[in-house]
Design a protein around this nucleic acid. Sequence first.
DNA 1: AAGGGGAGCAACCGCATGGCA
DNA 2: CTGCCATGCGGTTGCTCCCCT
Length: 293
Amino acid sequence: MGRPPCCDKENVKKGPWTPDEDILLVSYIEEHGPGNWRSVPVKTGLLRCSKSCRLRWTNYLRPGIKRGDFSAHEETTIIQLQAVLGNKWAAIASYLPERTDNDIKNFWNTHLKKKLKHEIGAFQNDGCSSSSQPSIPRGQWERSLQTDFQMTRKAFSDALSVDIKHSKHSNGLSSFYSMPSIDTQSAIYAASTENISRLLEGWMSKSSKSGGSSVATAYTSSNGVSLDAYEPFLGLDSPMTDVSHSQSVNFEENITIFQDESKPSFSLLEEWLLESESQEFFDMPYQDTSHQW
DNA sequence: AAGGGGAGCAACCGCATGGCA
DNA sequence: CTGCCATGCGGTTGCTCCCCT
């Protein structure tokens, strides 16, 4: 017997959410807080699947979500994190707390993938690479990869510029995101009210012309973000071990993969980062080598 | 002006995971 | 230990809008 459906599909509404439904959902969450999603459709009278309610909240109504164009910095961060973490959108989103994993995933699939493909294509057409005989000087690849590595580290450092170790053991994620020390639930509620007004604004502007969404000013709540999965990366609760990997050796391995598959692959770099305990990763002095290119 | 096609994005689907009885 | 349930996550779909012909 297979898994029972999460809800009665017969009486479940699908498709875009209406303003009324949004208000109903936000009002309920303001009162009861997020969670216990199964009971949400029952208690609110929404003809929606519990999953749909959760998704609508986490991807759209949740306080602190920034919408609209991605900045150059966000774009760079996503590219670098994707290179290291792969398609772990939730993990990537945890470094960009104002963006949802869905947004990042969409942005990657619709913009960045094409952009990178185009840039790699242009790079190969420049005569730097050929399908039959890779002709890139090994030293050049190594420097290039090292630059990627440095940039990734910088992205991590930027994203983690707050004191994570302290925040984890004091006020959890709230302080991680530099929230003022106020009651978290109140923050969620206040921000939700802001979201409702934003929604109304959005609908008003949408009715005149399908306008873009306004930028959220509310700070991020703790919903939907879990640090636990990334503890190895953050060096939290991880025993410090002697890490004496040779960078050059690992870069060589990555260079080989890159050349063989004619596309960037950082799987070994990722493995190395995970294996080598992240602390050293962050403790290494950052050297901006990008100017060399 | 119409319609065809592509891009962007919200939402859905189904599997994975973790907690709990 | 096992099974159930709630939630999380990533891939995919489908709708809407916009641009081009």
